[in-house]
Simulated assay, not measured.
Amino acid sequence: MNIEQLLERLDTAETDEEISEIGRKILEIDPESPYGKLAVWETMDYEGCVENLDMLREALSGIRMIISEKDAPPNIEEDRDAQAYCTIMMNLGYSLLAEQETEEALEVAKEFANFDDEGFYPSRTLLYRCMLDLQMYRQIFDTLESDPLESVVGEHARAIALIETEAEPGEIRDAVSYAISLDPEVPFFVLNIWEFPEPEDDIDEDIEDTVNYATYVAEPWCSSDKRLAALSAPTFLFGYLTDRLNDEKEIQVLKEGYEGAGVLKEVEEAKAKIREMEQQACDPEEIDAVALGETGAIVEKLLG
Rank of each mutant, 00 (worst) to 15 (best):
N2P: 03
N2E: 03
I3T: 03
E4N: 06
Q5A: 14
Q5D: 14
L7N: 13
L10I: 02
D11H: 14
T12L: 14
T12Q: 15
T12P: 01
A13T: 04
I26E: 03
I29H: 05
D30H: 02
S33R: 08
Y35A: 06
Y35E: 09
K37D: 03
A39W: 00
E42Y: 05
M44S: 07
M44A: 06
M44P: 00
E47C: 04
C49L: 13
C49E: 14
V50C: 09
E51G: 04
L56S: 03
R57C: 09
L60I: 06
I63E: 15
R64L: 08
M65C: 09
E69H: 10
A72D: 13
P73G: 12
P73F: 08
N75W: 12
D79I: 06
R80N: 13
D81M: 14
M89I: 08
M90Y: 14
N91F: 08
L97C: 07
E99R: 11
Q100T: 13
E101T: 04
E107M: 08
K110G: 01
F112D: 02
D117H: 06
E118N: 10
P122E: 00
P122Q: 01
S123Y: 01
R124K: 10
T125G: 13
L132I: 00
L132K: 00
F141M: 08
L144P: 08
L144M: 11
D147R: 04
L149H: 01
V152H: 01
G154E: 01
G154Q: 01
A159N: 00
A161E: 03
I163F: 07
I163G: 08
I163K: 07
E164F: 03
E164G: 04
P169G: 07
G170N: 11
G170K: 11
D174G: 05
A175W: 00
S177D: 11
Y178V: 05
Y178C: 06
S181V: 07
S181W: 09
L182E: 02
P184T: 13
E185Q: 14
P187Q: 05
F188W: 02
V190K: 02
E195P: 09
E198G: 12
P199A: 07
I203L: 04
T210I: 10
V217R: 00
E219D: 06
E219N: 09
C222M: 15
S223Q: 07
D225Y: 10
D225Q: 09
P234I: 06
T235M: 02
T235K: 01
L237R: 00
L237P: 00
T242G: 08
L245Y: 01
L254D: 11
K255I: 08
G257H: 13
Y258M: 15
G260K: 15
V263C: 11
L264D: 05
L264A: 10
E266N: 14
V267I: 11
V267M: 10
E268P: 06
E269F: 09
E269Y: 10
K273D: 15
I274N: 12
I274H: 13
E276Q: 15
M277Q: 13
M277Y: 05
E278C: 12
P284L: 12
I287M: 14
A289Y: 14
A289P: 11
L292W: 07
E294W: 08
A297D: 15
E300I: 07
K301A: 14
L302E: 02
L303F: 11
